[in-house]
Nucleic acid binder design. Sequence first.
DNA 1: TTATATAGTTAAGTTCGTTTAACCAATTAA
DNA 2: TTAATTGGTTAAACGAACTTAACTATATAA
Lengths: 154, 154
Amino acid sequence: MTDPQQFTQVLHNWAEIFMRRSMRDFIQSSKDSGLSVTQLSTLFRLHHKGFCGVSEVGDHLGITHAAASQMVERLVQLRLLERAEDPRDRRVKHLTLTVKGQELVQESIQARRRWMEELTNALTPQEHGLIIDALTILTAAARQLETSKKMKDE
Amino acid sequence: MTDPQQFTQVLHNWAEIFMRRSMRDFIQSSKDSGLSVTQLSTLFRLHHKGFCGVSEVGDHLGITHAAASQMVERLVQLRLLERAEDPRDRRVKHLTLTVKGQELVQESIQARRRWMEELTNALTPQEHGLIIDALTILTAAARQLETSKKMKDE
DNA sequence: TTATATAGTTAAGTTCGTTTAACCAATTAA
DNA sequence: TTAATTGGTTAAACGAACTTAACTATATAA
């Protein structure tokens, strides 16, 4: 097996176990909070982006703008989202997480964090060092890909 | 920042970008295949476990056994799942993926695989080596945790 | 100015996935 | 053998979330 193939394979193995764990936690969070997976996904998106408009939410989830508007309305009712007018273009709604919304996202992240602490405890300091270096590189590369792709889309 | 904290933080950074990407692909797969997130999730579970019963599907998703039975029925109708009697306990249904079901899972994995190839190309062979070592350790530790937790539950 | 495009909302109708409750069949315990 | 338990199915009813279509308001182009 050549090196790049081996690399992809190793990444894949890790992805498989990581996804299994994360999806389970995510579905669990969804049940706990009483929100659908798409609703929770929207909160996470806002956690990452900071703010966005209603149409963007819909495009991202592959649903109509009408459906997105209704979903946002529900999240606003639940006091998880703030919906304000964008002063620069008053057609646009400026969606942001409320404090309550941020807390909910943090709770959902906590489960993962606990798992990571278990992983931390299962490894030696030497292994920590190695993995820190590796994941730092990997994360930087992934971020780079993410932003360069975004540039291309716009 | 002490070493274990830094380790957890780095793991967390990677998790964040990885999850964002994977959830997007997963929701996209769900749309493409016309299956709900929970249905697709069940196919992935069977891909991993090999087989399981109907109640187990329900427990895992946090829905009633009745709902699980109906969901399985839909997947069987779509020829994605095979539902056979377990010869050792004829109350139990032995659920497995059909070839078509396996193909669908593979398609869903493909998107991730393409992303990983992009990542692969963005890094040098030296970096590959480092990351291979790190992720191999990490994956082994995660698998260990997974099986030891399973032992405890049973 | 007028026309067109964009962002979002609302209402009506539909579909899908869920629950509850009643049920059957197979297994295990008394 | 009988009773209780376990695994799964079915039917009826319900609610959440979606779509289409019509609408308002703002912004931009002709």
